[in-house]
Design a protein around this nucleic acid. Structure first.
Length: 876
RNA sequence: GGAAGUUUAGCUCAGCUGGUUCAGAGCAUCUGCCUUACAAGCAGAGGGUCGGGGGUUCGAAUCCCUCAACUUCCA
């Protein structure tokens, strides 16, 4: 019957997770008699291993799901993984390289075979790790973004949007890695500050002997210039308006255009416009309808359009052209200059802005309902400060480039025809039929060539809240039973970093395909950082191994540690101390149970002495639960946890259990015992979402229970009403206890030495009700009422004077000093109150309740002053 | 360069529309305790001019202006 003095999580956690799985507590089926509560997991990358960010994110989801389940809702948490085109392809390429295989030597099919093998082997690791955390996902519903049905959904959506005219092919500037010969996403580009040079080049004005000078870091691109741009407000250049300039060395005339975009302060105030090789210039080119001259090959060498230096590498060309310009007398000077230059994360090559043909989704119309639903709080962001960011992005949204030059992913269902046209269809067969019908041709399957590229990974994950339930609705338009029941989902928990990439796009897809929001609440977590404030990352090696943490502190401890200091949207500065605190908390509860389970019950005993304590805790529990519910309501999860923590540690353990605890080896009365077990059970219920393993273990220790009575499916307690007055009275008693303990501590008197307490009060009834508690907690042999005592240490609580006789031990000077100090403070306080009350404008202007309050403060302070003054008189 | 946010105890943060216990919590620190549930613990204590300055108000951590520092997003 004796339990270990320390809680050991390992065995307990494995046991209960298996138990929950066996009894299918995580699984959810459509059940119209119950309200659905749905969360879809932000699918982690298949390349991923569990990191601290996942821990935080999934702990929050599990807390929400477990609470909803206990509240009788049909809780469904759908897990899954994301195929992560770029990251996975990079992993597979690296793996092949280790095996001595070059990706270029493989066909697409061969490569994909390796990729799938890799996915089967490593893709599920992260989900297994989530189980260790206690995640109560419905594992039977596990999905992968490249599952056949989900892929089908992605292709249907592409075809559909293309048919609606929302998807088009267009030119776009991408980050090109000339070494890897591939486009990079912005995330794969690392900006580095580079010491470079600013070349000042002289361009002759057509039909005159004048020159204008332009500063550029990229002189090798002058052959691609199509205009010179000046700021129309710049008085230095008014004479150039409408003229033309001549590109040095190749002597091509280009127009001088005007745009306020030009920074008059930078360089010479003149800008050369090279649309093919600079993003900003490209925009400028579109605005002014300029042609585009691309002088670079894919490998970064100059092509024939450059006319000179053809075949030279861009950096070699830069040096050479500097020399040529100098020789031609058209190089004014060269200055040192620091600039930020993008480098390829993988090859470290300097990234070249390059125009290429890509697929786009028109965003202008499709985003409208997604913007308004968030602005009108139909979908609520927590914390709401992210609404601003969301709006600015949605209002300035650019068309979404959805193609990627990769193989791992959903291949774009566009088929090119020998006649130079293309068709978009779900299958090659359909494409063929469509092609022949449209163009009156007689092509065969082998004439069709499918687009090489795959779709952006977000183009599949934006369908996630829909496609995990119903992958066919995109083509049929008819939602299945699952979708009708579970959609819209309730809460989405994710990181603010992907608010635009993912969250916004899910909202867009939700309205586009179902005319309904995908979720009601978006809880945005912070970033987990190390003590130095750095983001935790594998490359820095500053992230603890989550599984090791679970091993060392228990899953419950880790969950609590993660949540302790993570208000929504705020970064979490992680410190192992937090997890230790979580572990200690688990141990505290474990020991509280050890105490309670060790009691013997004597049915002859009366529980009268404990009635006041029981009544107080009942009130306090209901008060705390009300607060906790309020925190949950507002998605203040860490506050909800802290309130629970304090309820258990401070109120239940430190006060309540001490109040009712029988003397050593003495039995307890049945009424108190029963009540205490009831309180304990309620506490376990409230704590379960945060610490599922420990609570389920103790739940079954308290009583043998059948599966349907397991804690995970027990109903959540509802907060009853509570008597604030009773709680305040108890607080007054606690204050007296603390004061007496303080006297012992400051005078070095052993807690074993008993005191007798005399109280001067008009409210003796209160102290009588709590007499047993006072005696036990302050170690008193008697509590009596009466007038002031001599030779006693005194203190004042509210307006009541308390005396502890202490012949010979009273240091009169010290006592006087203490009381005087408090008296001074109280007088000062009273003065400030009186100042307000004597101010007519305050009395007239402030609300009635505020004035009444000040009057009450006045009365309390006056009573206290009276008591203190009397105590002081007694001393002399 | 454009926009937003943050600044309260040693650390991490609460403090809603100005007015109870308005200066709080947890951790950390200090002191005393191996008191038979728990030293992963118990009891007690100290600690802040609410970033600086100005203003509005009877009254400002809270509203306004300004300066400074940090962070993030966009370019």
């Amino acid at each position: 019957m004796s339990l270990a003095t320390k809680y050991t999580p390992e065995a307990v956690e494995a046991k209960w997770y298996q138990y929950w799985m066996e009894h299918k507590f995580f699984s959810s089926q459509v059940d119209h008699s119950k309200e659905a509560y749905t969360i879809v997991i932000p699918p982690p990358n298949v390349t991923g291993v569990l990191h601290m960010g996942h821990m935080l994110n999934n702990t929050i989801q599990d807390v929400l799901v477990r609470k909803a389940r206990m509240q009788g809702k049909n809780a469904c948490w759908v897990p899954g993984t994301d195929h992560a085109s770029i990251a996975t392809e990079a992993k597979v390429v690296a793996m092949l390289k280790d095996m001595g295989i070059d990706k270029k030597s493989l066909s697409r099919e061969e490569f994909l075979t390796y990729a799938w093998e890799w996915k089967e082997k490593y893709g599920g690791i992260i989900l297994e790790q989530l189980k260790k955390l206690g995640a109560s996902c419905d594992w039977d519903r596990t999905k992968f973004t490249m599952d056949a049905d989900l892929s089908d959904a992605v292709i249907s959506v592409f075809v559909d949007l293309h048919k609606k005219g929302k998807i088009y092919r267009g030119i776009r500037m991408v980050n090109w890695d000339p070494q890897g010969k591939t486009a990079l996403s912005d995330d794969e580009v690392i900006m580095k500050e580079i010491q470079s040079k600013l070349y000042y080049i002289r361009y002759q004005i057509e039909g005159s002997e004048d020159f204008l000078t332009i500063a550029t870091t990229r002189p090798e691109t002058i052959m691609a210039d199509v205009a010179i741009c000046i700021n129309p407000n710049d008085p230095r250049f008014t004479h150039l308006k409408g003229k033309k300039a001549i590109i040095p060395l190749i002597n091509r005339a280009i127009p001088i255009i005007e745009d306020e975009y030009v920074d008059m302060e930078f360089g010479t105030g003149c800008l050369k416009v090279t649309p093919a090789h600079d993003v900003n210039d490209y925009e400028l080119g579109i605005k002014h309808k300029l042609e585009v001259i691309d002088i670079l090959n894919d490998d970064g060498t100059l092509n024939a359009k450059a006319q000179i230096l053809v075949g030279e590498d861009r950096f070699v060309a830069r040096k050479k052209i500097g020399k040529l310009l100098d020789e031609a007398g058209q190089l004014d000077k060269i200055e040192d200059y620091k600039s930020n230059v993008g480098h390829s994360e993988r090859t470290n090559a300097v990234v070249e802005p390059k125009l290429s043909l890509q697929w786009f989704l028109k965003m202008e119309d499709i985003t409208k309902p997604a913007l308004s639903s968030v602005m009108e709080d139909i979908i609520q962001l927590h914390p709401p400060k992210f609404k601003n960011m969301y709006r600015s992005w949605m209002e300035n949204v650019r068309d979404w480039c959805i193609s990627r030059q990769l193989w791992w992913g959903h291949q774009i269902p566009a088929y090119y025809l020998p006649n130079g046209e293309y068709v978009v269809a779900k299958t090659k067969e359909e494409a063929l039929a469509q092609a022949n019908a449209t163009y009156g041709t007689d092509y065969s399957i082998s004439d069709l060539i499918q687009d090489e590229d795959v779709l952006d990974t977000w183009f599949s994950s934006w369908l996630w809240p829909i496609s995990v339930f119903d992958s066919e609705v995109f083509s049929t338009g008819k939602p299945n039973e699952d979708l009708k029941y579970y959609y819209p989902t309730n809460d989405l928990v994710t990181a603010p970093e992907i608010l635009f990439f993912w969250v916004a796009r899910m909202i867009i897809a939700g309205y586009e395909y179902l005319g309904e929001k995908p979720f009601k609440n978006v809880y945005l977590t912070g970033i987990v950082r190390d003590k130095l404030g750095r983001k935790m990352s594998k490359s820095l090696g500053n992230s603890p191994d989550p599984l090791e943490l679970i091993q060392n502190y228990g899953a419950d401890g880790v969950r609590v540690g993660m949540l302790f200091s993570s208000p929504a949207g705020n970064d979490l500065p992680f410190d192992e101390k937090l997890v230790e605190q979580g572990r200690n908390f688990a141990n505290k509860i474990w020991n509280a149970y050890r105490l309670v389970q060790g009691w013997e019950i004597d049915s002859n005993l009366s529980g009268d002495a404990n009635a006041a304590s029981i009544a107080w805790f009942e009130n306090r529990f209901n008060q705390a639960l009300t607060e906790i519910e309020d925190h949950f309501e507002k998605f203040r999860i860490s506050d909800a946890l802290m309130a629970t923590y304090k309820l258990i540690w401070d109120d239940f353990c430190s006060w309540y259990l001490e109040m009712i605890k029988p003397a050593y080896q003495a039995p307890i009365d049945p009424a108190t015992h029963a009540k205490t077990i009831e309180f304990f059970e309620n506490i376990l219920k409230v704590l379960h979402p945060f610490m599922p393993f420990l609570t389920e273990e103790l739940w079954h220790q308290i009583n043998e229970r059948s599966a349907e009575n397991a804690l995970i499916v027990t109903s959540w307690p509802s907060a009853g009403s509570f008597d604030v007055n009773n709680i305040a009275e108890a607080a007054q008693i606690f204050e007296v206890v603390s004061q007496i303990r303080n006297i012992r501590a400051s005078k070095g008197i052993s807690p074993k030495e008993t005191f007798s307490l005399t109280i001067k009060t008009v409210n003796a009834g209160l102290y009588e009700r709590f007499e047993a508690v006072l005696k036990k907690l302050a170690n008193l042999d008697s509590v009596s009422f009466g007038d002031s005592l001599d030779n006693a240490i005194s203190f004042v609580v509210k307006a009541d004077e308390c005396f502890i006789p202490m012949a010979g031990q009273v240091n009169v000077e010290e006592e006087r000093e203490n009381i005087t100090k408090e008296l001074e403070y109280t007088k000062g306080f009273l003065q400030s109150v009186m100042k307000k009350l004597s101010n007519e404008r305050f009395v007239a202007g402030a609300p009635e309740a505020v004035v009444a309050n000040e009057k009450k403060k006045q009365a309390d302070a006056e009573a206290k002053i009276k008591a203190l003054e009397e105590a002081l008189r007694k001393l002399s």
